[in-house]
Design a protein around this nucleic acid. Structure first.
Length: 277
DNA sequence: ATGCCTAATACGATTAGA
């Protein structure tokens, strides 16, 4: 089973590129972020014609998350319990939730497609929202950890957890989001809820995002901010991982590239195969 | 070329991105 996450930065502007990649790479399950469209606007036919079922949550031109799968999709959940909302210029509780989280069960795993708030700047209300969103996600993850079904939080976490994940010189320590101690602590707290980054051990270096501006990709000045965080059962099934850097090349790429994980969810079946000598 | 930013919307200037 091959699972991937990809911030596609508008599914409508590059649906052909996404579906071509899915088919070429034999991806079973793709979690997408920043689809930037509503359900009615989603290019469903392009995915279905290639054999993928799609579930999504998109409210408007901002954010939006989806899961496409070659396997049946069940138990779809929009938003996680306790997920905070946000409205620019408005403070208080019970603000409208944004389209940043969708969970589903497919292909033998429980997968979440997450688009963590950007934060904008350290003194912006969006930054406090980001930290609160991550804290509530951590609370929800602790509750999910009791489940036997392998599960993974995948997506654009908008945090570069280590200095080695930062190649973009425009990010200044002490002044920039994505690298602040509070964001990194929030990411570590999420892992401490019972998850591990299943890609990093197999792909120790490399970025998943390069800004469109200022030749960031040709200069390889990127960020590693897209992750697959797996439960113990999920992590135990991982047999391979890759960051598809080449998807940043060519015509009209997303500014993020896919992060891919290969899983063997039923290793005991291997013992049942006829032995041929 | 991996090349100096891109996408959606109120179709032009604004908002957002990280």
């Amino acid at each position: 089973m091959r699972l991937a996450t990809w911030n596609v930065n508008s599914v409508r502007s590059r649906s052909a590129r996404i579906v071509d990649w899915l088919v070429r790479e034999s991806v079973d399950v793709l979690a997408m972020q920043e689809i930037k469209c509503t359900d009615a606007q989603f290019p469903r036919a392009a995915f279905e014609d290639a054999g993928y079922e799609v579930v999504l949550h998109g409210l408007n031109q901002w954010n939006g998350v989806a899961i496409a799968s070659r396997h049946p999709i069940d138990d779809v959940e929009v938003g996680f319990p306790g997920m905070p909302g946000f409205e620019k210029g408005v403070e208080g509780l019970d603000l409208p939730q944004e389209a940043r989280a969708i969970g589903a069960t497919t292909g033998g795993v429980r997968v979440w497609s997450l688009y963590v708030p950007n934060g904008r700047s350290l003194d912006d209300p969006h930054y406090a929202y980001k930290l609160d969103w991550l804290a509530k996600l951590t609370d929800a993850t602790r509750a999910w950890a009791a489940s036997d079904l392998p599960f993974a939080l995948t997506g654009d976490f908008n945090i570069a957890p280590t200095d080695g994940d930062v190649g973009d010189p425009s990010l200044i320590p002490g002044l920039s989001t994505h690298i602040s101690p509070a964001e990194r602590a929030a990411f570590e707290a999420l892992l401490a809820a019972g998850l591990t980054d299943v890609v990093r051990p197999l792909v120790p270096t490399g970025y998943t995002y390069w800004d469109y501006k200022q030749l960031r990709f040709p200069r390889n000045e990127g960020l590693r901010i897209d992750f697959v965080l797996g439960s113990p059962a999920f992590a135990a099934a991982v047999t391979g991982a890759a960051i598809h850097r080449d998807e940043r090349k060519g015509d009209a790429p997303s500014d993020h590239v896919p992060v891919v994980v290969d899983l063997d969810l039923h290793p005991e079946d291997d013992d049942d195969r006829p032995m041929i000598f």
